[in-house]
């Protein structure tokens, strides 16, 4: 049937953008349009500093979005990242707090800071390993597994902080990384780190075997296995990668606020998921890009920032966000359907 049309003389090929490129551009266009609309409605919105804020205010969730996007592309969820943020932050504080505190919450293990964060990171990776174990080895759906480990991670954080926070008896070095300004500007080290992560992730996704294997697995897991891809191994790496990012984010946030707070990162896993979906990552896997996810985050950030500038009540902020998410997703679906008609 279609072999007939296939053998017809080919039309002159114009260089056609990939679907991913198309969606990423679309999401970027939506983000920029929203920014311009907000600039019309909100006084003083249209300025460079505000653009910078959109990124710097959201470095944590964008960083988490990288790991979550890779996993989504491979066809797996990671809802544990918010819990890991809390856990690694709390662990880093607990490990670093000096051993002689006035009460239980101000007494820690007294490890040197470097060792403390290394151990905290190890804790985060353990959660990632648990995710991989249950998803890969026991074949339990990832959404269930990571929902469970999300509670495990946060639960441990709450046990360590007695359900509250640890913020005393910390060494001087503890606040350094989270508050380090680079290049003599107000841009902080965590933001720069997120930028580096983003660039590396884009390179890995586009140019590297590791990235393409992620897409192959997401596009057709069975074909991937039959093509000689070790799926279990790769998904394990992705969960460790995602948990590692979440661990670093948790450590940096703890450092920035000099506290280990068991409720930190609450609902961040859902924000990370939402920005990835907003950015065009397919919930069924095999499709999406980190650039799209980044602009997805910017869409949400523009709305939040504009609502703050207008001093909107919490209810209206919520409604505004819901409308923006809805519009962005509808636009995307519609545009992709039209393009592929």
């Amino acid at each position: 049937m279609s072999s007939v049309t296939d053998t017809l003389p080919t039309r002159p090929t114009r260089s056609k953008m990939s679907d991913e490129g198309f969606i990423s551009s679309l999401v970027a266009a939506v983000a920029i349009s929203l920014f311009l609309i907000a600039s019309l409605l909100v006084p003083n919105f249209f300025q460079w500093q505000n653009v910078v804020n959109l990124v710097t205010n959201n470095w944590a969730v964008i960083a988490l979005g990288v790991g979550v996007s890779f996993l989504l592309v491979s066809g797996n969820f990671d809802l544990s990242v918010g819990g890991i943020v809390a856990l690694s932050g709390v662990l880093s504080v607990w490990f670093a707090q000096s051993t002689e505190g006035a009460n239980a919450l101000s007494t820690g293990l007294g490890l040197p800071y470097g060792l403390a964060i290394a151990c905290a990171l190890l804790g985060a990776l353990t959660i990632g390993a648990l995710n991989a174990l249950f998803v890969v080895r026991f074949g339990i759906p990832s959404i269930i597994v990571t929902l469970g480990t999300m509670m495990v991670a946060r639960g441990i954080a709450q046990v360590i902080t007695h359900g509250s926070q640890r913020n005393t008896n910390l060494p001087e070095a503890f606040g350094y990384l989270g508050n380090l300004s680079l290049f003599g500007t107000s841009i902080k080290f965590p933001v720069v780190l997120m930028g580096v992560l983003l660039v590396v992730a884009i390179f890995v996704e586009r140019k590297m075997v590791f990235g393409r294997i992620t897409y192959w697995i997401g596009a057709n897991p069975e074909a991937a296995t039959l093509s000689g891809i070790d799926r279990a191994r790769h998904i394990t790496k992705l969960y460790l990668f995602s948990a590692g990012i979440a661990g670093v984010v948790g450590i940096l946030l703890a450092s920035e606020y000099k506290s280990g707070f068991s409720n930190r990162g609450l609902l961040m896993e859902f924000d990370a998921l939402v920005i990835a979906l907003l950015g065009g990552v397919a919930i069924a896997g095999g499709f999406g890009s980190v650039i799209g996810m980044f602009f997805g985050a910017i869409i949400l950030a523009v709305v939040t920032s504009a609502a703050t500038g207008l001093v909107l009540s919490p209810d209206w902020q919520f409604i505004l966000k819901a409308v923006a998410v809805f519009l962005a997703i509808v636009t995307q679906t519609w545009a992709l359907a039209r393009r592929n008609k």
Binding site: Y257, R264, V311
Partner: peptide, 16 residues
Amino acid sequence: GQEAAKQIIVDLLTQR
């Protein structure tokens, strides 16, 4: 919480 407070201050004081 504190992350929200920080975001609000940064956004608000940039615009106001």
